[in-house]
């Protein structure tokens, strides 16, 4: 129990929960509240679409322990704990942003009717994709720089001056894809699973590959009699 409490405190779960709630509040401010003030606008929905980025980055950054060396020599294997952190914090944020976004109801008559199909499903999808991306970023650039990858993904629809309209797969412009977009949803789930594997292995790609090959060897090895 003490170990669990120590882990929870050292990974700033309370701060993560607070950030998730603030993110949900921001979605309501940028989405339903702004939209109720200006039903023909809807332009802030694009901002609301990016807000899961905050929770995603917080989940990853808080797991970038300041006590990496101690972690390595800890009596317990922290992989499962790290995975619990990943799933628990994403779940809390997912419920918060999902509930907040459920009030998002952009009318097709709005100036940006392309956002009329954007709602809670898309917000949760964005959270999954960006959280996974943060852990992929951390494994590529280090624990302090996990945010670089999801930030890039969240801003791409707005920096690709002409590319946004020509992104037929919706992968580059995932954050503004509608609820029903199939390929972005699959990409988000895959990214989330990859992120989970990296989270459990302290964002070491080598560790993930070693684990996979270890499991594969166990499965394929002949049984001793």
């Amino acid at each position: 129990m003490t170990g669990a409490l120590l882990f929870i405190r050292s990974r700033y779960w309370l701060a993560n929960i607070a950030i998730a709630l603030i993110s949900a509040g921001l979605i309501d401010v940028c989405g339903p509240i702004a939209y109720s003030l200006n039903p023909l606008g809807g332009y802030l929905v694009a901002v609301a679409a990016q807000i899961p980025l905050v929770s995603a980055v917080a989940t990853q950054a808080s797991l970038a322990s300041a006590t990496t060396v101690q972690d390595r020599y800890s009596a317990r294997h922290l992989g499962v704990w790290r995975l619990i952190h990943y799933v628990a914090m994403t779940s809390v944020a997912g419920i918060a942003v999902g509930l907040a976004a459920s009030a998002l109801n952009v009318s097709p008559e709005s100036q940006l009717s392309s956002y009329s199909d954007f709602g809670a499903v898309a917000e949760v999808r964005n959270l999954l994709a960006l959280t996974g991306a943060a852990f992929i970023g951390a494994s590529a650039f280090g624990g302090a720089f996990g945010w670089t990858f999801p930030l890039a993904w969240a801003t791409l629809p707005f920096v690709l001056a002409r590319g946004a309209n020509s992104d037929s797969t919706g992968l580059l412009t995932l954050v503004i894809a509608p609820d029903a977009a199939f390929i972005p949803m699959v990409a988000a789930l895959v990214t989330f699973v990859v992120g989970a594997a990296l989270a459990a292995s302290a964002w070491s790609v080598t560790a993930v590959l070693t684990s996979i090959s270890g499991v594969a060897k166990k499965v394929t090895a002949p049984q001793r009699r």
Binding site: L53, V57, A61, A64, A144, F145, W147, L151
Partner: peptide, 17 residues
């Protein structure tokens, strides 16, 4: 602190947005 680099990046981005 753990949050400083991402907070700086996100704060700057938030100001632009």
């Amino acid at each position: 602190y753990w949050f400083v680099p991402p907070a700086a990046a996100l704060a700057f981005y938030a100001v632009l947005v």
